[in-house]
Amino acid sequence: MEEIGKETGKEGGKPIIELIDVVKSFKQQKVLDRVSLTIREGTTMVIVGGSGQGKSVLLKHMLGLLKPDQGKVLVFGRDLARVSKGELKDVRKEYGVLFQNVALFDSMTVFDNVALPLRERTKLGENEIRAQVEEKLSMMDLEGTGEKYPAQLSGGMKKRVGLARALILNPRIVFFDEPTTGLDVSRSNEIYRLFYKTQTRLKYTAVIVSHDVPKIFKLADYVALVADGKIQECLTPEDFQLSENPAIKSFVKETMGPIYSSEEEEMGFYEADQR
């Protein structure tokens, strides 16, 4: 079995995604407040943060699904807030996305789901499409599932189909929105192994929104914490865990620390439970 984990803090190539002073509000609530973040080509950026802190909103800005109220979202040097529909489509041709709930087309078979980008975006013949889809399904250990429908698959299998679809056109950037949500430990590890295997092979830049801390640190080159609508800091996983930034310390304590803040508190809960 392949070992997960790699050397972190890779410098990477030129900036591929740059968020500059991005502000986004929904009605009166400011979700992103002057957020700036740079993601370099070939690296893995993990975005962490508590629920409702704006991780998914940040991701949606990078995907061009939301436009900022202020600031710039530069992808390949093009500002997604100001590009035309055609230019946005060109940018997205370099994207692969694994959604939190996978977003497979439930009325299509697994094969058709994975084949869709090839059918709609290339002029390949059906034989070539079949060969490529089967190759990706096999890469995801999904041989023999092509004729099944998403509803007939387990959660882990759906995620793998989603990953196969995201990677079918060999994108330059792959976005993962909570890739292991709803999966047990062994299925989560399976997804991480596949991520590691495919990234090593296809060399894509990865942006992962996750709260699977600390496991996700093994895959990250950089970790950015979103809290109170801001990127608190963007550091290597090692530096992140040792950071003195109060927001990071609090996040690390909450996610990696013990469940109870003291032995007395633990005993108190235990005794309450006995009663």
């Binding site: 995907l63 699904l65 060109d90 994207y95 709930n101 977003a103 439930d106 976005f175």
Partner: peptide
């Protein structure tokens, strides 16, 4: 249902125009 389950977002992110497709 496609909108609720992010299938339309998925189409857009795959650079497939939902209006056409």
């Amino acid at each position: 249902i496609m909108r609720n389950s992010e299938q339309i977002d998925a189409l857009e992110c795959m650079a497939i125009d939902p209006h056409k497709y």
